[in-house]
Computed example of a mutant assay.
Amino acid sequence: MATLLRYGVSIAGIGFNFGVAAIQVVGPRHGFYSVFRTCFLSLSSLLLWMAAVVAKVIGALLVVVSAYFYGYHQGQNAEELNHARTQISALTAALEEHKAKQASDAVALANLRIDESRARDELDRMRGQLSELERRAKTAADRQRNRCLQLAVEGRELLGQALRAVRFCAENHR
Rank of each mutant, 00 (worst) to 15 (best):
A152V: 04
V65L: 10
S104M: 05
C39D: 07
V153F: 05
V35M: 11
L123H: 07
S44W: 05
I114P: 00
S104V: 03
D115K: 05
A141N: 10
A170K: 11
T38K: 14
A52I: 06
Q144F: 09
R120T: 14
R174P: 15
N82T: 09
G31L: 12
A52S: 07
L5S: 01
Q161N: 09
Q76I: 15
V166W: 15
A170V: 12
E154P: 02
A60E: 10
V53F: 12
E171G: 11
G128E: 03
V53P: 01
A119V: 06
R127V: 15
L133H: 02
A22S: 15
G15M: 05
C148P: 05
L61R: 06
R85H: 13
L81V: 12
L112G: 04
T38F: 08
Y72G: 00
T3P: 00
Q74G: 02
Q144T: 13
G59K: 03
S117R: 05
R145S: 03
S42P: 01
V35A: 11
L91E: 12
H173C: 09
P28S: 15
A140W: 09
A67W: 07
A67H: 09
L61C: 06
L41Y: 11
L163F: 11
A90H: 10
G31C: 08
S66L: 12
R125G: 04
I14N: 07
C39W: 07
C169G: 04
L109N: 08
L95E: 14
Y72S: 11
A51C: 04
A55V: 03
G27W: 13
A141Y: 08
D105K: 03
A119M: 06
E79A: 15
F18L: 10
Q150I: 05
E116R: 02
V26P: 00
H73P: 00
Q24H: 10
A55W: 10
V25H: 13
V57H: 05
S117T: 12
S104Q: 09
I58M: 04
A55F: 09
A78R: 12
Q150S: 15
R147K: 14
E96V: 11
H30G: 04
F40W: 15
N17W: 08
N77A: 15
F18P: 00
R145H: 11
L46Q: 00
L41A: 11
A93M: 10
G13W: 02
F16R: 01
